[in-house]
Design a binder for these strands. Structure first.
Lengths: 215, 215
DNA sequence: ATAAAACTTCGGGTTTACCCCGAAAAATAA
DNA sequence: TTATTTTTCGGGGTAAACCCGAAGTTTTAT
């Protein structure tokens, strides 16, 4: 018997999925959650084998929920479900402990197969998702072979200044924020322009975003 | 007996909805479509009272499908279903003949009520949707500023200028490239700053990248 | 058809970013 | 310890970005 918690804010969707699972003898829907925090609350007091987790939950993102589940309930498997076959979504939630990822346009049979596979300890990805991951890996290698080797390392201060530039602060505002002189900030920006081979702040931010240097 | 056609590309969702409707004696699911054109094909050869139409269909948008249904099969009622409570979606599809609009986070009972109401010739909107419409009607002016803050539509010239800004070109270089005055480019940038609610070009590029507005 | 809104096009004037120069104390690496 | 990088700051200047306003055109709505 596999105890399942469905975490999705779309009631109609949850209703439908539950009526699919109800016909299976080895599957039992032990609860439903409509937001992130209540998932964690539910897990504290119920025995759950697998969480069907919507990636796009209100209040708390599915990624954060997944992270929390893995930290506090390592035995609970997570099967991520999403509307979107987005590379960023897929790779991010997989890096936070999800064992499978399927799309909402997945058919009944594949859904059941995915649930049983993940509950059994293995991973499951639908065909489309696999393709997306492959593309992501290819691009990653291409990007790392291309830029990571040539990417200069930035000092602590430079990173601080860069982040503030990306947040649209003026030089004076950055100076005030870091308690340093306007001229010092300009010096850091100048170093950044040189290191990142950019012509202006726009280039700095573009390069920073392309290399996930912010956040 | 109400004959229903479900038009949604999310198989799992359709499966679920069908199993909900199957339990009702007066409702009969006479078909399912996974894209816009097949809806129209199906209607030619089957008697359908109501179409449960996903607004976001692949290939042909739900709005266009709705328009075609009303033109060719005026007796067929349309109940629009969507993930998003977006004012633009709601008002647009209602202006093209849909008799009701509900969200995918609607519960089982409300779904059944909506189907029977629309099939009976009346209109039905879920509570959230009604609020959205009211807000839209109340602030007709602020509606543009509101949706503009979320996802503003940029003019052809503005997009051109934005792309060149993101490529680190100076205003003069952009002017030369587009064969317009430096002052005109600055005017476009100013419009962009206002529309995207940014303080400077760095913000423009950050927002553009976050929304995949470039390339 | 006519009014309203948006788009494209500019100019004048102010603020900010960027550049080149130089330099010294502090932290880090060799 | 010595050498290198980092962090700090200034003076002075140019080019670019940004703000305020405005007119003609096009598009949209009534």
């Amino acid at each position: 018997m596999i105890n399942i918690l469905i975490a999705d804010d779309h009631t109609m969707f949850v209703d439908g999925m539950e009526s699919i699972l109800k016909t299976e003898a080895d599957l039992f829907v032990s609860g439903r959650s409509y937001d992130g925090p209540s998932v964690l609350v539910f897990l504290k007091s119920h025995k759950v084998d697998l969480v069907l987790l919507d990636v796009n939950l209100p209040g708390m993102s599915g990624i954060d929920v997944c992270k929390e589940i893995n930290a506090n309930f390592p035995d609970v498997k997570v099967l991520a479900i999403s509307m979107f076959n987005e590379e960023s979504f897929v790779s991010e939630i997989l890096n936070h402990g999800a064992k499978g990822y399927i799309l909402k346009n997945t058919g009944r049979e594949e859904l059941l197969k995915a649930i049983r596979t993940v509950a059994g300890g293995e991973s499951y990805f639908s065909k489309d998702v696999t393709e997306t991951i492959m593309k992501g890996l290819m691009n990653q290698r291409k990007a790392s072979a291309k830029s990571a080797a040539f990417f200069p390392k930035l000092s602590r201060r430079e990173k601080e200044v860069l982040k503030l530039i990306a947040q649209e602060f003026t030089t004076q505002e950055i100076a005030d924020n870091l308690y340093i002189s306007l001229k010092t900030v300009e010096s850091h920006r100048s170093s950044l322009l040189s290191k990142l081979n950019a012509r202006n702040s726009v280039g700095l931010v573009r390069i920073a975003m392309e290399n996930h240097l912010l956040e």
